[in-house]
Amino acid sequence: MTKPVQSDTTSTEDERARQRFILEDTGFDEVPKKYRKFYRKWKATGDALAPNEVICPVCKVVIRSSRELRPGDRVYCMPCMSRLIVVRTDAGTLEAHVAY
């Protein structure tokens, strides 16, 4: 589960404060234990991404951050070793693009 806990008030002035999240282990077992809470499996039907989550385009795992994600943020997919940049799509959703 992803639980929002507070807002980060250290953001720049032109940014709405970011939500913060406490991440819990979702049973994702493809990375060492200390990193597991940062990833979960996409459940397809009925699943939805939280504001702190994006899908890795390379391996389709859900990547999670302790912060609400914004365009320009960097995230890492450890299961497939990809570095990604968060972008906003034309549809208004967040998407991760590989940054080689």
Binding site: V58, C77, P79, C80, S82, V98, Y100
Partner: peptide, 9 residues
């Protein structure tokens, strides 16, 4: 997952 990620990156 690791193998495809290594190759692409």
């Amino acid at each position: 997952r690791r193998h495809i990620g290594f190759g692409e990156n």
